[in-house]
C-alpha cells in the first residue's frame, strides 16, 4: 500500500515546479496589482477616481474597444477565406501556407515598422503615387492631426499581422472535419453553400470560438503597433499603463489600468464562453 501511495506523488512532484513558478510570477503579481491599484493617498478608490476623472482614460477605453471591434471581425473573415482556400489542397499549397505563416514569426514591433516603410512620408506608397503623378505632395498618415488615417493604418497593420494567427486555428479545425461528413452531404445532394453553412461552419464553431476569444483578448491588450505608429496620439489602455509606469513613474495608476484590462478580458471571456458555446459538444459521450 505504501508503495502505491508514493507513486501517486510522482506526477504531483513533476507538476510542482511549474505550479510554484506560475504562482510566483502570475499569481503574486495579480494580487500585487490589486494592492497597488487600491492604494492611493485618496483612499482605496482614489486611483479609480483619478482615472475616470481624466479624459484620457475614457478615450483610451473607447479607442481600445473600437480597434478591437474593427479588427477582430476583419481578421476572422479573412482567416476563414484563407483557410478554406488552403484547405482545397491544390498543387503547391504548402508553399502558400508557409507564406501566410510568415507574420506569425513577426513581432508587433517589426510589423509596425514594415507598415511605416510603406506609409511614411517618403514611404513606398507616397513615392509610387507621386511618380505616377497621382499626387504632388506626400500624403501624411502619421501625426496628431491625422488621427483617423493613423487609426486605419493601425487596423491594416494588425489585420496583416494577426490574421495568420486566426487562420492557423481555423485551418487546424478545418483539417479535423471528417471528410465523410462532406461526402455524405454530397450523396444527399447538398449544394456547395449548404455544405458550408450546414456542415463546415457548425463543426468549425469551436475553432472559431477559440480564435475569436484569443484574438479579442489580445486585441484588447494591443500595445506595440499603436505605440510605434501613433504614440499617444491615439491613447489605448495598455499604452496608458505603459505611460504611467515608465514616464510618470506611478505604478498605482499603471496597475489600475492593468486591472481594468484584466477585468474587461474576464468579461469578454465569460461572454464568449456563455453565448457561443457549441451545442453539439455538450454532454459529449467520451469512451
Amino acid at each position: 500500500m505504501g508503495e502505491r501511495e508514493k507513486r501517486d506523488w510522482i506526477p504531483l512532484l513533476l507538476l510542482l515546479p511549474t505550479l510554484i513558478y506560475l504562482i510566483a510570477f502570475l499569481g503574486y503579481p495579480l494580487i500585487e496589482t490589486f494592492i497597488l491599484a487600491f492604494t492611493s493617498d485618496q483612499g482605496a478608490l482614489g486611483n479609480f477616481k483619478r482615472l475616470t476623472a481624466t479624459g484620457e482614460f475614457w478615450e483610451a477605453l473607447r479607442n481600445t474597444l473600437l480597434i478591437t471591434a474593427v479588427i477582430v471581425p476583419l481578421q476572422l473573415g479573412f482567416a476563414l477565406m484563407l483557410a478554406l482556400f488552403i484547405n482545397m489542397k491544390f498543387k503547391g499549397y504548402t508553399f502558400i501556407l508557409y507564406i501566410i505563416s510568415i507574420p506569425l514569426a513577426l513581432s508587433d514591433v517589426s510589423a509596425s515598422l514594415m507598415s511605416y516603410t510603406i506609409f511614411a512620408p517618403m514611404g513606398y506608397l507616397n513615392k509610387l503615387l507621386m511618380n505616377l503623378h497621382i499626387i504632388d505632395r506626400p500624403i501624411y498618415f502619421f501625426g496628431f492631426t491625422y488621427q483617423t488615417r493613423e487609426f486605419w493604418v493601425i487596423v491594416l497593420t494588425e489585420v496583416w499581422r494577426a490574421t495568420p494567427l486566426v487562420f492557423v486555428i481555423i485551418l487546424a479545425g478545418l483539417q479535423a472535419v471528417n471528410k465523410e461528413y462532406l461526402e455524405a452531404a454530397d450523396i444527399f445532394g447538398f449544394s456547395r453553400w449548404q455544405k458550408f453553412t450546414r456542415i463546415i461552419l457548425p463543426l468549425l464553431k469551436p475553432s472559431i470560438l477559440s480564435a475569436l476569444l484569443i484574438r479579442t483578448l489580445f486585441a484588447f491588450q494591443i500595445f506595440g503597433v499603436v505605440w510605434l505608429l501613433a504614440g499617444r496620439d491615439i491613447p489605448i489602455l495598455a499604452g496608458e499603463a505603459y505611460y504611467w509606469q515608465t514616464e510618470v513613474n506611478n505604478s498605482n495608476v499603471a496597475c489600475t489600468y492593468g486591472l481594468v484590462i484584466a477585468l474587461v478580458s474576464l468579461i469578454i471571456s465569460w461572454a464568449y464562453l456563455t453565448f457561443l458555446k457549441p451545442g453539439h459538444l455538450e454532454g459529449e459521450v467520451t469512451e
Binding site: F25, P29, E32, L217, S251, I261, A262
Partner: peptide, 15 residues
C-alpha cells in the same frame, strides 16, 4: 494564456 502580460509587468518592477 489569457493573462494580460501588463498585469504581471508592473508588480514585477516593484518586486
Amino acid at each position: 494564456r489569457s493573462f494580460p502580460a501588463l498585469v504581471m509587468a508592473v508588480p514585477l518592477v516593484v518586486l
